[in-house]
C-alpha cells in the first residue's frame, strides 16, 4: 500500500484530534467554541481533499480545460461552513448571556454556581428558607 497517497487525510486526522481535544479538555467556553470550529474545519479538509483530481482545475467550465475537480464536495462544504458559522454565532450569544448571568465563562466556576442553585432549591424544599419562590416574578425585565 502506498502510504504517501494518504498523507493528506492524516493531516486531517491530526487537525481533527487537536480541535476535538480543545473541545473536551478546556474549560473556557469561548475556547471550546474555537476548538469546535477547528474540528469542523478538519472535516471540511476531508471533503475537499477527496474532491481533488491531480491535474484537474477548478470546476468552472472553460474550453481550455478538460479535467475538473469534483464539484459536489465543494457544494456540501459550502453548506457545512454556513452551518458552522451559525453554530458559532448561537454559541457565542449563549456565552455572552452566560457571562452576564454568572460573571464567568469558566466551566468549573459555573458548575459551582449551578450546584449552589441546586442546594438552595433543596434547602428550601425542606423548609430552611422562606417561601419566596411563589411570588410571581415580573417577567418583563
Amino acid at each position: 500500500m502506498n502510504i504517501i497517497g494518504l498523507y493528506n487525510y492524516w493531516i486531517v486526522v491530526v487537525l481533527m484530534a487537536i480541535g476535538f481535544f480543545i473541545v473536551i479538555a478546556h474549560e473556557n467556553l469561548i475556547k471550546k467554541l474555537i476548538g469546535l470550529s477547528i474540528f469542523q474545519t478538519a472535516v471540511f479538509f476531508l471533503y475537499i481533499s477527496m474532491g481533488k483530481v491531480v491535474g484537474g482545475t477548478a470546476p468552472i467550465l472553460d474550453d481550455k480545460w478538460h479535467l475538473y475537480s469534483n464539484p459536489l464536495p465543494h457544494v456540501l462544504i459550502l453548506t457545512a461552513i454556513v452551518v458552522g458559522i451559525s453554530t458559532t454565532a448561537v454559541g457565542l450569544a449563549l456565552v455572552v448571556r452566560i457571562q452576564e448571568a454568572y460573571g464567568s465563562i469558566e466551566e468549573h466556576e459555573i458548575q459551582t454556581l449551578n450546584a449552589q442553585d441546586q442546594i438552595e432549591c433543596q434547602l428550601e424544599a425542606y423548609g430552611f428558607m422562606k417561601n419566596n419562590a411563589f411570588s410571581v416574578k415580573s417577567l418583563d425585565e
Binding site: G51, G56, I81
Partner: peptide, 28 residues
Amino acid sequence: LDAVDVAFTEASVGAGISTLLMLASLKM
C-alpha cells in the same frame, strides 16, 4: 485543492465574520 468557492467563503466567514464576533464577545 481547486475549491475556489469554498476558499472564498472560508476567507470571508472564518477569517472575517467569526473573528469579528469572537472579538465582540471577548470585549466583555
